[in-house]
Design a protein around this nucleic acid. Structure first.
Lengths: 224, 224
DNA sequence: GATCGATGTGACGCGATTGTGACGGGATTG
DNA sequence: CAATCCCGTCACAATCGCGTCACATCGATC
């Protein structure tokens, strides 16, 4: 079942309980300055209050964008009143959307569902093309020069995360978080095993080794 | 001469008279909660009013889909006004299309003709050619490399649904809904049995295994 | 080239997921 | 109305995935 992460900067995000609706699982999470408390793999929808006690909504939005784990989140800015000037500023700060609050739980859900159906129309088949490597997100199938790569679920997630952050050193911690494995805590050395297994699977499909080890730091997906 | 069934939930469907236009024979039929009153073999086009006195349009749509005789009908939802929210819900409930009413008889005909010509361009539902596999919708016959595959009705529906959604992970839930088995509720594990039986039938005809298991998610019909 | 921390990797085992034979009730057929 | 077929469910077997460990290997530094 799909999991949809919903982040809120107000008390609506307090309950960490899951919420199932229409065959999808939603998790509500309180969004603080340090980012979300938990992050399950899946689409992310953030609702940021324009006026916050400790941190301006603008700044919160920037932090979300800066963190590779949440950079893809869809950000909706929640305005207290419909001020055109605020709207403009919110969108310029990187928000994808705005809404005039205050929100209720069901209002949030409805909005996410509406936006989601629009989003799925737009990018029904997401597809990465990275040199010889292609990743078909709809079929959950990766190929090297057209040759299918047989990947286990975790390997696929790993490859996907690398593909989303090419040419950038990812620490073992980045990888663990990027794959949503903060809980239960995982030994960092396990990442080495993930890498080894992914490399082997790619090689088994006749591929090269796009994963470079950066000693005492992490790994990079080399592109071009 | 082809016969085209047109179902309507309002008084436009009252007359059971045939109507000939452009070398095609159309039958108009009043669609009630029990389904159409008569059904001639041929393409089916249903126009369901979003607002109905006794039964919501949504529910009517589901019933159409649930009945194997009408599951293939093209469903157009007739909205009273252009509310994006209603549009979204209509499409998610299984409608193929929507239109803002009220409709006249000729408007319905025009629409059907327009949709029909588009459909025949796609020639979607007549015949699939997917690698070694061919599916003849008219003869309800599938073949692997020309060799007939003996399929039970449910297996055929399943294969058809896969063929309509190749290279795309389908969850067990997708498959249950795609085969119109929302009612009565079906155990998701039953899908595993469907898959097993379909695989066996294909293999019995000398075919390969085009169905890939995606662990903890669902199944994909792999193509290319 | 010796040393030592960092990385690569085969093996293991548990828990989760999937495959499948068997059964029975209901529909269908002749 | 008997024989057959179809299909949903169940229970058990088979398989798979993955985190961990232990040991092999590597490579920077002196």
């Amino acid at each position: 079942m799909d999991v949809v992460n919903i982040f809120l900067t107000n008390e609506l995000g307090e309950s960490l309980e899951d919420f199932v609706h229409d065959h999808r699982r939603f998790t509500f999470d309180r969004l603080g300055p340090e980012g979300p408390r938990r992050l399950v793999e899946g689409p992310m929808w953030a609702f940021i209050d324009w006026v916050l006690p400790d941190l301006a909504g603008l700044e919160m939005c920037r932090r979300l964008r800066a963190d590779p784990r949440t950079a893809d989140a869809h950000v909706t800015m929640v305005l207290e009143e419909d001020d055109p000037e605020d709207r403009r500023r919110a969108l310029r700060a990187g928000a994808d959307d705005y809404v005039v609050g205050p929100l209720t739980r069901t209002a949030v859900l409805d909005r996410v569902l509406a936006l989601q159906s629009r989003a799925s129309e737009r990018s029904a088949t997401r597809r990465f093309e990275l040199g010889a490597l292609t990743i078909d997100m709809a079929a959950l199938q990766a190929r090297w020069d057209g040759e299918p790569i047989v990947l286990r679920p975790n390997e696929f997630r790993l490859l996907r995360f690398f593909a989303e952050n090419p040419n950038r050193v990812l620490t073992r911690d980045d990888l663990i978080n990027g794959l949503g494995k903060r809980e239960p805590p995982i030994d960092e050395r396990t990442v080495d095993v993930w890498i080894g297994r992914l490399r082997r699977s790619i090689k088994a499909a006749g591929g090269g080794n796009p994963l470079r080890t950066v000693r005492s730091l992490g790994y990079v997906f080399d592109l071009g």
